[in-house]
Amino acid sequence: MTDTAIEFVDVVKCYGAVTAVDTINFSISRGELVTFLGPSGCGKTTSLRLIAGLELPTSGTVRIAGEDVSTRAAPDRNVGMVFQSYALFPHMSVIENVAYGPTIRGSDKKSAIARGHEILSMLGLEGLGKRLPSELSGGQQQRVAVARAIVQQPDVLLFDEPLSNVDAKLRRRVREEIRDLQRRFNLTAVYVTHDQEEALAVSDRIIVMSNGKIAQIGTPRELYESPSSRFVADFIGDANLIEGQIENGAFRAPGLSLPLPATSRTGPAVISIRPERIVLKKSGSDGKVKSASYLGSRREYRVETAYGTLLVSAPISAPALEPGEEISVILSPGGYTLLSDA
């Protein structure tokens, strides 16, 4: 057994003239939770379905647990999937739903049901086996969907936007549950979401996708702190993108000069600065507060400077600034990232 659970090599998926997934490569290790993140239509769900075998690649290779499964459809792969709508069979009881997979794959009914009950109690659903899915709460339904997906000890567990049907307030708890479960069973999991906060919270690594291509792969921290492109910088969290030139090892824009010790590039460039990495000080001539909003846990300002309008997030402990105030703007070294695209 290799440590690589899933591997995509030059995978392409076309629907007629539309290319949904365009030559993507990545690999996922065993026991890892990796998230596909991106706006709708970026190819993240198609990628997930390619892992599930619900779509077969137009070209390229998909490997699961070291085996080439590119031409195998879903029934011939060993994956578990939790669907956005849960897709519980409404005409079957909870236990019938959970025992469905083992029965289909040839277990006798008795042991399938025993196994089903075992999983149900591990997920805190004991006693609900006889109910119909419609008689459960949303959270319980989701846990049944998870139980059904992991009962066959899949090589990989897939989640397709599992929180989109969950109450906004419950989301944090449910995503913690999912993460906890994945760690407890040491599952390899792939998760699809368009919500960057959710992705940052649950993932070991995130694969950011855009227009069918991979924009960047990295840990949540890497993606947030050193985005490689405008797209990633903008999509994950808020970012101030400043255009300028690199000259003599420094980034220069009107009224701004930031040292870039490690680069040998010259010419036009863009840097990204996170709003909370900017410090504003009363009195100065770097810029002027345009608007201020109080958000409870922090304050947000729009600041006009010579190199553009900045979004700044200030801790609530810092002194409040009023619109119209002249201020100084402090950009600490390490608080900005040079993007690879100009």
Partner: peptide, 11 residues
Amino acid sequence: SMEEASQTMGA
């Protein structure tokens, strides 16, 4: 997705 669920379970 109900049918897809069934497929991922081996049917």
